[in-house]
Amino acid sequence: MKDECTMKTETQLSFDADFDLSNAQITVLLVDDQPFIGKMIGSMLKEEPDIIFHYCQDARKAIHMANHVSPTVILQDLTMPDVDGLQMVKYYRLNTFSRQTPLIVLSGQEDAKVKADAFALGANDYMVKPPDRIELIARIRYHSQAYINMLQRDAAYRRVEEQSAELEIRNQFIKKTFGRYLSDDIVESILDTPEGLELGGEKRKVTIMMTDLRGFTSIGERLPPEDVLAIINIYLKSMTDIILKYEGTIDEFIGDAILVIFGAPVFQEDDARRAIACAVEMQQSMETVNKKISRWAILKFVWGLALILERLLLEISVQKNDPSMGLLEAMST
């Protein structure tokens, strides 16, 4: 038996989420003003190697001791000289570190009214002194294991919540990074299959579209830089909306040129058909684009297209430190 109100801090049950609760030991704290009760219960538990026993004779120090030894069950005497046992039950439940700790009230009498009061204040069990050894150990194990299981469950929930928060941060990064170049459906597909973001790539058949504005370089040389920027923004905004509408992947902007892939990172059977439909609508939208830039009093732009309808075998790589998608190799098939 430990000395009165001793604290064995090296065996404390941790409430830290990083603590391995699978190896948590049963820890008993007995609070009783009668030393012979302490010796008796200590003797009962002495032959149980998996049970750590602590004894506190002074009820005024019980809460302090409970905070340090983190018991898996508290045995609280009902009749104490300084603090009433029922009042101690209330104090345990108000204390952060013992609020959920199983509490067994010990009493010298079998009184239904006292039992009811103890349970109403938060006690988990009630035993008459002196307790039977087998029954006492059984109840200690039962309540302690239930408590340890609860701590393990809560720790698991905290880990899940932390992982969910980390995943949400990652998903927001992906949405922010790829959202300007990919449709919402494709971004969601990437989030559902994160292995697609691993270093390296894969061979895949895709359809590629390359578009530009014919004569843009010579026209741009005759305009102030701010006008060139305004014109290219109008054009790229209009084209980007259409490309995303048809679930194309914008691989790269090269001045006024746009390189678009259909079939990566998500392959669909109608990639080539959508690429053609996308090209047609982009061509039709040039009338609107030319109207928007007419205030600069320049010639209408002519839109150029190179659409590879022969499917290509491409190696596509999405690097962890570079969110762009690169075409590393292309071969006609």
Rank of each mutant, 00 (worst) to 15 (best):
C5S: 12
C5A: 08
T6Y: 12
T6W: 09
T6R: 04
K8Q: 13
T9K: 11
E10A: 07
T11P: 00
Q12M: 08
Q12P: 00
Q12R: 07
L13T: 07
L13W: 02
A17W: 10
A17L: 06
D18Y: 12
F19K: 02
D20S: 07
S22F: 02
S22C: 08
N23I: 13
A24L: 06
A24T: 08
A24I: 05
A24P: 04
Q25I: 01
Q25D: 10
Q25P: 05
I26C: 09
T27N: 11
V28P: 05
V28R: 00
L29D: 09
L29A: 09
L29W: 10
V31C: 12
V31I: 12
D32F: 13
D32N: 12
D33Q: 10
D33V: 07
P35K: 13
P35R: 14
F36E: 15
F36A: 14
K39Y: 12
I41N: 02
S43F: 08
S43R: 12
K46A: 10
K46E: 10
E47L: 04
E48H: 05
D50G: 00
I52V: 11
I52G: 00
I52F: 01
H54C: 08
H54F: 09
H54A: 06
Y55S: 09
C56S: 12
D58L: 01
A59E: 13
R60T: 15
R60Y: 03
K61N: 05
K61T: 03
K61I: 03
A62Y: 00
I63L: 13
M65A: 15
M65G: 07
N67E: 10
N67G: 14
N67C: 06
N67S: 06
H68S: 14
H68Y: 06
S70N: 04
P71I: 01
V73N: 00
V73H: 00
I74D: 01
I74Y: 03
I74R: 00
I74A: 00
I74G: 01
L75A: 11
L75Q: 07
L75T: 12
L75K: 15
Q76D: 07
D77H: 03
D77C: 03
L78C: 12
T79Y: 10
M80E: 01
P81Q: 03
P81S: 05
P81W: 11
P81D: 07
D82S: 08
V83S: 08
D84N: 11
Q87V: 13
M88N: 07
Y91A: 14
Y91N: 14
Y92T: 13
Y92L: 11
R93S: 10
N95K: 06
N95M: 00
T96V: 14
T96C: 06
F97G: 05
S98M: 07
S98E: 03
S98C: 09
S98G: 05
Q100H: 15
Q100Y: 08
Q100S: 14
T101V: 12
T101Y: 03
T101C: 09
P102E: 12
P102L: 11
L103K: 01
L103D: 04
L103Y: 02
